[in-house]
Amino acid sequence: MNDVVIMFVCAGGMSSSLVVSKMQKAAEEQALNAEICATGVGHGKEILKDGDDIDALLIGPQVCFSANELEKVAEENNRKTIIHVADMRDYGMVDGEKILKDILNKLETSYV
């Protein structure tokens, strides 16, 4: 996998920003061309409706209740976006490297 676009949604996009910066650092260390951004669930839903270039949508554990709604938006708009709730422990430990590894594994298995 050479290029990947990952959007991380949480309550307002603030708490996930630190995780995203750690994920970006891990991606750079792996020479992975990754565009990773953080935003709130509402804005993320709008981006998911309008953009078909999002490979993965990560959901912060504090807003895991929004997973079904986001999956429905993706399905209604014919998006192939992988939707995944970040592990609560990894999120709490701000383990961007592990969270990135998990989502990359999901992406790889979905393309098989």
Rank of each mutant, 00 (worst) to 15 (best):
M88R: 09
V85D: 05
A38C: 07
I103P: 06
V112T: 14
V4C: 06
G13D: 09
D3S: 14
A31L: 08
D3W: 07
V112D: 14
D95Y: 02
S110N: 13
M14I: 15
E108Q: 13
L104I: 11
I47R: 12
N78Y: 14
D3A: 12
S21F: 03
N68F: 10
L70I: 04
E46W: 05
G12A: 15
V19L: 14
L58H: 01
A56V: 15
S66L: 00
S16E: 04
A67Y: 02
M7I: 12
M93R: 13
G96K: 02
D90L: 15
G60T: 07
F65R: 06
G13F: 11
I83R: 04
S15I: 10
G13C: 10
L57A: 02
D90I: 08
D90Y: 15
L70H: 03
S15K: 12
N2L: 08
L57S: 06
D50G: 11
I103F: 02
A26V: 03
L32V: 04
R89C: 10
T81H: 05
M93C: 08
G44F: 06
E69G: 06
I6Y: 10
M88Q: 14
R89T: 15
D3Q: 14
F8E: 04
N33M: 05
G42P: 00
K101Y: 12
A31Y: 10
K25C: 00
K22A: 06
A31T: 08
V9G: 03
A86P: 01
A34M: 05
A34R: 02
D50S: 15
L58K: 00
Q62D: 12
V41T: 13
V9W: 07
F65I: 04
Q24W: 03
E75A: 15
A67V: 08
S21I: 02
E69R: 01
A27Q: 04
T109R: 14
G40Q: 09
I36F: 08
K49D: 00
V4N: 07
V63R: 06
S17W: 10
Y111S: 15
V20E: 01
L107I: 13
I103Q: 03
V73W: 04
Q24Y: 00
M14F: 14
Q30S: 01
K98T: 09
I54E: 05
E108K: 15
G92V: 06
D52T: 08
F8Q: 04
G92K: 09
